[in-house]
Simulated scan of single mutants.
Amino acid sequence: MEHVRRAVVADAAAIAAVHRESRAAYYGDAPDASDGREAMWEHLLGLPDVVAHVVEDDHVVVAFLSARRRRSPEAALEMLALYVLPDRFGRGLGTRLHRVFVSELRADEVGVLEVWEGNHRAIQFYRRHGWTATTTSRPGPYDKPFITYRLA
């Protein structure tokens, strides 16, 4: 049975695996087990301003969310990642984690995130959940930018 819980540093390898598989699905690349994601997630999960949750199914991480608080230029909870294993797409796990993200928002904060313009599944997901594209972007892979979205 799937359940959501707060992530811990010991989840870094499992989170890296979900991140790698999901990311490969939307970029169209092969997963690279030597990409350093385990170390990246160990570091991020150890930071005091990072909020992270996982969805487990029978003790296996199948989805995760991470966010961090920032104060400049405005008070915001920035979603760093929301990833679901590709074989679990469309089952509501992203929506469950999105609800967790919204529950973590403080009254003085807005939600912000970046979405790669080529990730149409994610763009539709965030739009359905009330996110609005801004005019802010930065370069991304395959000549498609990362677009900043807001949830007020």
Rank of each mutant, 00 (worst) to 15 (best):
M1T: 10
E2M: 13
V4L: 01
R6N: 13
A7E: 03
A13L: 07
A13T: 02
A13I: 03
A13H: 05
A14F: 01
I15S: 04
A16Y: 05
H19E: 10
E21H: 14
E21T: 10
R23W: 15
R23T: 15
D29V: 12
P31T: 11
A33W: 11
D35V: 04
D35L: 02
R37Y: 14
M40L: 14
E42Q: 14
E42W: 10
H43E: 10
H43S: 13
L44V: 13
L44G: 11
L45K: 06
G46N: 06
G46A: 00
G46T: 06
L47C: 12
P48Y: 11
V50F: 10
V55L: 10
V55N: 08
D58I: 09
V61G: 09
A63C: 04
L65N: 00
S66D: 08
R70H: 04
R70D: 06
S72T: 15
L77F: 03
E78V: 15
V84K: 03
D87C: 09
G92K: 08
L93D: 03
L93K: 04
T95K: 09
R96T: 07
L97T: 12
L97E: 02
V102Y: 01
V102C: 05
L105E: 07
A107P: 03
D108N: 07
E109H: 02
L113Y: 05
L113A: 09
L113M: 12
E114I: 01
W116V: 14
R121I: 06
I123H: 02
I123E: 00
Y126N: 01
R128N: 13
H129L: 09
W131H: 01
A133Q: 04
T134G: 04
T135L: 11
Y142A: 15
D143H: 13
I147D: 02
T148K: 13
A152M: 10
